[in-house]
Design a protein around this nucleic acid. Structure first.
Lengths: 270, 270
DNA sequence: CAAATTTGTTCCAATATGCGGAACAGGCAT
DNA sequence: ATGCCTGTTCCGCATATTGGAACAAATTTG
C-alpha cells in the first residue's frame, strides 16, 4: 500500500502567506511514508532552496518536525499533543460514540465515524471488531471521499452546487478495479445513494474490504459526516451488508438528531 | 518581562518569528478545555489585538483552527490528519507495541507508552484494561513529568546536567496531596528511582490512580521514554505494583534493546 | 585519483509581509 | 440614551521573509 503519489489538492492553493508555506512543507513531510530528506521536500514543495531551508529550520525549532541524524525530517511529537485536544474536545465524536458502540454490538464488525473535509474523509473514531492489535490506528487517517462508504454517503448529502465544486477538485486514483475513475461515474452512484439513503463500498478502496455507510448532516455547524460498518469480504457478504443498511441509517439518524440538539443552533461554549 | 503565567513552559521562548507566534496561539487554543473567544486568547497570548486577529485568520484559513458561529475558536481537523502520520509512522511505537500487549496480558491492567519531551510526558500508545469505553483516548495527551510514573522514570535516566535544566523549568502544581511540590523533593525520589530502576506513581497525578513505570533510553536517537502499568488503587495495591516492577523493567529493557537494533545507530531512511 | 555532480548550508540586498497602535462598529448591559 | 466590552478594520513603519548565488562537503563518475 503506497498510494501516496498525491498530496491530493494541496497544489493550487497559494498558501496563506508565511504560515501557509510552512504548513505546505509540514504536510509534504507528513504525507510521505518515509522520512524526507531536504531534496525530497524540495521536489514536492516548489520553493527556492534558501527559503525552504529556513522554513525547515523554523519547523524543527517549533517541534513540528524532527530532524534525524541522517538529516532527514519526520513529523514531530508536538503534532500529537496538539491533535489530542482536537480529538478529545470534539463534542460531535462524543455524541456519536454510544451509537457506534451499539452498532458494533449489533453487527460484530468494525464501525467507523468519519467527517468530510473538502475531498477527503477524516476518521475521527472507530470501534474495532475484536482487538485487531492495531488499536486506535487510523484515527486521524484521511481517505479520499470518492472511494469510501462514508465518503460517498457524505457527498450524497451535499447540495448539487457544493457537490460539483468538490468533485471537480478530485483526482481519481484507481486503488482497485472497482474504484470510480471519473466524476460522472461517481455522480451516477451518488444519485442512487440519495434515493436509498445509504452507500456501499464494494472493495473500491481496498481489496477484500467492503462496507455500508449512512450520512450525518448538521447544517448549523457545516458538518457533513458519516457512519459505516466495515468487514472483510470473505466474512461479510453484500447481502449481509444490505441487511445492516437500515441499522446504519438508523444510527446515523440518531446521531444527527442528538447532534442538532446538543450542539445547539450555532452557539456552543458558554 | 514578567513570568507569564500560562502556556506552561512555552514561556521564555521568543517564538521563532512568525511561525512561533502562530503556534503559540494554536497551543493556547488547544490547551484550553473549551472553545476560546477572541478575548480569551488575547489574555493567554500576549499579542496586540491587530496582530492576534490576523494570526487567527491565517490559522483558520489553514484549517488548523475552526471558528464556530459564536465566534469562538477550537482546534481544527487538519491537526488530526497531520498527527496521524506522526503517530502511524512512529517506528518506536511500532517496536514497543508487542511488548505492551504482553505486559498487559501479564497484568490485566492498563499499559502506557510515553515519550519525554522537555518537562512533559506525551503518551503515544496504550493498551486498555477492558473496553473502558474511552478507547484510544489519551494518545497524544501531555502530562507533567514530575507527577507521573513514566515521567519520573524517564527523568531518572537523564544525565545530571539535563535533569537540572529540565527541573528548573518545571512549575509544580499540586494535583493531589502526594504530588511533588518542589524540585528538591522530586530529585530526592529520582535518586531512589535510579537505584531501583523503576518509579511509582502513588496517586500523585490523579487520586485513586497509581502505577509502576520503567525508563527506556535510546541515546542514539535522543529518545527518552517509559512504560507503565496503571490501575485504580482499590484494585491494585502497592504490593501488587511492586511485584510487577520487575516485569515492567524487563519489558522496558526489551523495547530498549530492540529499538537500539531496529532504529539503527542514527541512520534510518534508506 | 582528480573531475563532475549532487546535496546541504550560508550570505545578503530588496521588499513583501507581518506588525501593532489606534480608530471604528456592533452588541449588551446599565 | 450612555457607557463598556467585544470583535473588526485601517494604514504607515520596519522587520522577517525572499530567493539568487556562492560555498562546502559528501557522493558519484570518468
Amino acid at each position: 500500500m503506497e498510494p501516496n503519489i498525491v498530496t491530493d489538492q494541496g497544489s493550487e492553493r497559494p498558501g496563506t502567506g508565511t504560515l501557509g508555506k510552512a504548513m505546505a512543507v509540514l504536510e509534504a513531510v507528513a504525507a510521505a511514508d518515509r522520512p524526507q530528506r531536504f531534496t525530497d521536500i524540495l521536489r514536492s514543495v516548489r520553493q527556492p532552496r534558501g527559503t525552504l531551508h529556513r522554513l525547515l529550520g523554523h519547523l524543527v525549532d517549533e517541534g513540528l518536525l524532527v530532524q534525524r541524524s541522517d538529516l532527514s525530517y519526520e513529523p514531530g511529537l508536538r503534532l500529537l499533543k496538539l491533535a489530542y485536544r482536537s480529538w478529545s474536545g470534539n463534542q460531535f465524536r462524543d455524541i456519536a460514540e454510544p451509537h457506534l458502540l451499539r452498532l458494533h454490538e449489533l453487527t460484530g464488525e468494525t464501525v467507523h465515524l468519519g467527517i468530510l473535509r473538502e475531498t477527503e474523509i477524516i476518521y475521527v473514531d472507530k470501534v474495532e471488531s475484536r482487538q485487531t492489535v492495531r488499536m486506535s490506528s487510523q484515527i486521524g487517517k484521511a481517505s479520499p471521499a470518492y472511494c469510501t462508504g462514508i465518503g460517498k454517503a457524505a457527498l450524497s448529502s451535499l447540495p448539487d452546487g457544493e457537490l460539483e465544486r468538490v468533485t471537480a477538485r478530485m483526482q481519481f486514483v484507481p486503488f482497485t478495479q472497482r474504484t470510480h475513475c471519473s466524476a460522472a461515474s461517481l455522480l451516477a452512484e451518488i444519485e442512487e445513494i440519495r434515493r436509498e439513503g445509504h452507500a456501499f463500498d464494494r472493495e473500491e478502496h481496498e481489496a477484500e474490504i467492503c462496507c455500508v455507510a449512512a450520512p450525518i448532516v448538521v447544517p448549523e455547524h457545516e458538518l457533513v459526516a458519516g457512519i459505516s460498518v466495515t468487514g472483510p469480504s470473505y466474512r461479510v457478504t453484500m447481502t449481509q451488508l444490505a441487511a445492516w443498511a437500515a441499522d446504519v441509517r438508523n444510527a446515523a439518524a440518531k446521531v444527527e438528531e442528538e447532534a442538532r440538539i446538543r450542539l445547539g443552533p450555532g452557539r456552543g461554549g458558554r
